[in-house]
């Protein structure tokens, strides 16, 4: 223990510098070092998708990435996808379609859906299901989540 490294990257538009053990995952670093507890840690081995964040614009599992590997990267967490003024179109759509119940998995679904809709605002239901297959929800049965993502497409079209 004790072998630590200073790592600098950007989180939600702000530069951060952390001094962490190399074994610390990006998910734990966000939660414990940066107090960004919106990123949830479920399975810790890359199966459940709850810890999904955006790294340089792409959705990745923050439990399968070391914090030290984020050096120089632009990280966006679920906190970075909201604003204080109002719910975002994606959040509104989740509320409208009852796309969450307990809410544990929701940050992973929001970040994944945001990445998908940003890249592919014209995606169809099959594609939404395919992409969301990497996130597990034990409450909703997924129907509402798929509908919410499909309904939010309009807000992402340029």
């Amino acid at each position: 223990m004790g072998w630590r490294m200073t790592t600098k990257f950007e989180v939600n538009g702000k530069p951060v510098s952390v001094n962490v053990e190399p074994r610390m995952t990006l998910a734990d670093c966000l939660r414990h070092e940066l107090r960004l507890t919106g990123t949830h840690v479920g399975c810790e081995h890359g199966v459940c998708g709850a810890c999904t964040v955006l790294v340089d614009g792409e959705a990745v599992r923050a439990c399968l990435m070391l914090a030290v590997q984020a050096e120089g990267a632009k990280v966006v967490t679920v906190e970075g996808l909201s604003n204080d003024a109002d719910l975002t179109p994606l959040q509104k759509s989740f509320r409208k379609h009852h796309a969450l119940q307990c809410g544990f998995c929701t940050p992973g679904f929001i970040t994944t859906a945001h990445a998908l809709l940003t890249e592919e605002p014209d995606c169809d239901a099959d594609r939404v299901r395919e992409v969301l297959s990497g996130n597990i929800c034990r409450c909703t049965g997924y129907i509402g989540i798929v509908e919410a993502v499909l309904d939010a497409r309009a807000a992402y079209k340029k």
Binding site: G49, A59, V60, R61, L64, A115, V131, G134
Partner: peptide, 9 residues
């Protein structure tokens, strides 16, 4: 191969 997020890394 695996899922969307895993295919990104």
């Amino acid at each position: 191969v695996a899922h969307y997020q895993i295919r990104n890394r």
